[in-house]
Design a binder for these strands. Structure first.
Length: 732
DNA sequence: AAAAAAT
């Protein structure tokens, strides 16, 4: 077998080599089921918080050298795959190209056929070494197999990002970049901030007001749209069919949602529609389920509000208003909870102090709403707008509850976890841990992260010592559970962050398997900014009389986000993207595919805009590092797939660019929610081609977002205006 | 299409 074999079913776009991969030699030494903790590399530490510093120092250089070699190798592979790409120095290397003004990428590139790659190549002499000198890594790389103690597998990869001696390293990626320091416009530009902008600029835009709404008025098939009834359930495309197909009494419903809604066009009715479609439904989901009533636990709380129950329908009919179905929720009036403190809500002093240290001095509305019922032990569904503070809303009461349940008990070595927090991406799991861990530590509880893409040893080691709260992603949690290294039987509280996403195809079944492993009486908490009927499959099986909460009056039009849609010709897209991200603030660019995300990051680099990518084809170390570089401000542009759409919090992202429009309104809401967090302002720009206007309009309707559409060409002042730069010849 | 376990 060739040593350099590729995975049989490997992905076409493997941008990163897998360092942690075991050789067949090592695999043969290890028996299935045998812990890897006994292998030489892991040194199974004897206590939590073990830092292998003694042997780490010498190892570090070796690993870094290897990493560099691997990265260069990856670059070689990549440029071979796209050998017509303009080659130049590596992303981390010195940039010896001409100054950016001479390179230019503005209107002068209009003639460029295709417009995708504005820069045709300079000679790739700065990379020649990789082509010839690479065989030592690629073909006969003896060091990989011969080294006895493979340190990569068991080392905690993530420590590289926060290692103190990282800053001391001489190889600084950005400090010696000429084009970064030289850019004068960056520092000189006067107050690029959004505050002095006239806020809503669409109102006085001539071309907008004058437009006679041509898109809709003269479209024949929109006014008399007969196709609507013929079309096979158009708006359910993005929802999992399973909810409807296998429910017996659902099939009987005469598709009321669409057949009796003829007047979508002249919808003034929207606001006066009294009760959203849930009230007339027979509440079949819960009342007649046999396994629900039989369950013995927590049926003692009669005051509990039911989901989809009459209690929820009272005060917020005016704003419970989406095109899509929503869960009926008990709205919490922000004003009514404004006076409460975390102490009032039932949290202990240590936790309150820690929350204060985390910057949460007083509870946000969603926190005030959910903390008391969670402390009471209720199953809770909560919908809180992006950036509204959901992590603390479940994290703090979870810690308090576990603390109370453990009161008087000593922390035993090897105890099984008592709480489980599940997230759809590793980055989100990490981020949740960064909030929950300090809260837990403040009362002497321990958390650990259980997610894939990193060696298991450290995670297993933590579990062996005993952990109270687990935060992770489904795959690795199931994996360790199957290996017998993780016992979920004592879990008392399970949190599903981004619960609607976790109920989608592909996630649902792992979630069901995991939830079946925890004790029947465990408390379940489901959180998401877009909580909807999609969670029904999980709610029906696992939740008992859940209370549903949302914050009253919290709709998208009260948010602090400006939404824009730019209509462009496809051939102009690359150039327009370049000018959109050429700005001072942090910009997050979304693409639909990993390959396009990677390509865009390179494209931006090629025009002198430092950018990194975040997607599932990168190894976890690179994912974590690239996200951190945006957080640190070492790079201002991150191009990501929807791996970054949900939950990820980076301070001060003030522009989100959707290079590919999302297909689903919920995706739009989550991507948009990476900006405008905690009351800050932000702009979301979506690029579409002309033929997509109608789809885009419909999606925005579902999202309840108003956004002006503007035709745009490269060089238009509108681009600078949208990206927050001062337009030269536009009078404010 | 992406994400989530390695292999």
């Amino acid at each position: 077998m060739p040593k350099n074999k590729k995975p049989a079913g490997g992905r076409a776009q493997n941008f990163e080599p897998r360092y942690g991969k075991k050789t067949s030699y090592q695999d043969a030494k290890r028996r299935p089921g045998q812990s890897s903790a006994g292998t030489p590399g892991s040194k199974s530490p004897g206590h939590r918080g073990y830092r292998p510093e003694a042997e780490e120092a010498p190892r570090k250089n070796r690993w870094n050298a290897q990493e560099r070699a691997g990265r260069d190798e990856a670059r070689g592979i990549r440029s071979q795959a796209r050998d017509d790409r303009a080659p130049r120095g590596g992303r981390d290397g010195r940039d010896d190209r001409a100054p950016r003004e001479q390179r230019g990428y503005g209107n002068d590139r209009r003639s460029d056929a295709g417009g995708r790659r504005p820069y045709e190549g300079q000679p790739r002499d700065d990379r020649r070494t990789f082509g010839d000198a690479r065989p030592s890594y690629r073909d006969d790389r003896p060091r990989r197999d011969d080294r006895p103690a493979r340190s990569f597998d068991d080392r905690p990869r993530r420590e590289f990002s926060d290692r103190p001696n990282r800053d001391d390293r001489p190889r600084r990626d950005f400090s010696d970049r000429p084009n970064r320091d030289d850019r004068p416009r960056r520092d000189d530009r006067p107050a690029r901030s959004f505050d002095d902008r006239p806020r809503r600029d669409f109102s006085d835009r001539p071309n907008r007001d004058d437009r006679p709404r041509r898109d809709f008025s003269d479209r024949p098939n929109r006014d008399d749209r007969p196709r609507r009834d013929d079309r096979p359930a158009r708006s359910f495309d993005d929802r999992p069919r399973r909810d409807f197909s296998d429910r017996p009494n659902r099939d009987d419903r005469p598709r009321r949602d669409f057949s009796d809604r003829p007047n979508r066009d002249d919808r003034p009715r929207r606001d006066d529609r009294p009760a959203r479609s849930f009230d007339d439904r027979p509440r079949r989901d819960f009342s007649d389920r046999p396994n629900r009533d039989d369950r013995p636990r927590r049926t003692d709380g009669p005051s509990r509000s039911n989901w989809a129950a009459e209690t929820g329908a009272k005060a917020h009919q005016d704003h419970v208003d989406t095109v899509h179905e929503r869960l009926q929720a008990e709205a919490v009036d922000a004003a009514s909870v404004a006076q409460s403190s975390f102490s009032d809500l039932g949290l202990g002093d240590n936790i309150v102090r820690q929350l204060d240290a985390l910057g949460a001095a007083s509870p946000f509305p969603i926190q005030a709403a959910t903390i008391p019922p969670i402390l009471e032990g209720k199953d809770v569904l909560a919908r809180g707008r992006t950036g509204s503070g959901k992590t603390i809303a479940f994290g703090a009461p979870l810690v308090e509850s576990i603390l109370r349940s453990q009161a008087g008990k000593r922390r035993e070595f090897g105890r099984s976890p008592k709480a489980l927090i599940l997230a759809p991406t590793r980055e989100l799991a990490l981020q949740i841990d960064r909030t929950v861990q300090p809260i837990a530590r403040s009362v002497g509880l321990f958390t650990t992260q259980i997610y894939g893409g990193v060696p298991q040893a450290r995670q297993v080691g933590a579990l062996k010592k005993g952990v109270d709260i687990i935060i992770g992603t489904p795959g690795r949690i199931e994996d360790l559970q199957n290996q017998g290294k993780l016992d979920l039987s004592e879990v008392q509280i399970v949190v599903l962050d981004e619960a609607d996403h976790m109920s989608e195809l592909g996630f649902l079944e792992p979630m069901q398997r995991i939830l079946r492993l925890v004790q029947d009486g465990a408390q379940k908490l489901l959180f998401s900014a877009t909580l909807d009927r999609e969670v029904a499959a999980l709610v029906d099986e696992f939740l008992v009389e859940p209370a549903v909460y949302e914050v009253a009056g919290e709709s998208q039009d009260t948010s602090t986000i400006d939404h824009r849609v730019l209509v462009l010709d496809h051939r102009d897209k690359a150039e327009i993207l370049n000018s959109l991200v050429d700005r001072d603030g942090k910009t997050l660019v979304f693409s639909r595919t990993r390959a396009y995300a990677e390509m865009l990051a390179e494209q931006f680099e090629d025009v002198g805009i430092p950018a990194v990518a975040l997607h599932g084809d990168l190894n976890q170390g690179k994912r974590t590092r690239n996200l951190q570089r945006l957080t640190d401000g070492k790079v201002r542009v991150l191009v990501a797939t929807d791996v970054a759409a949900r939950g990820i919090h980076v301070d001060d992202i003030d522009l989100v660019v959707q290079a590919d429009a999302p297909d689903e309104y919920k995706t739009y809401l989550h991507r948009s929610g990476r900006t405008g967090r905690a009351g800050r302002t932000g702009t979301v720009v979506t690029l579409i081609t002309r033929q997509r206007r109608r789809r885009m309009t419909e999606m925005l309707e579902r999202a309840e977002i108003e956004a002006p559409f503007d035709d745009v060409r490269p060089g238009d002042d509108l681009l600078e205006e949208v990206s927050g730069r001062q337009a030269s010849n536009v009078d404010a």
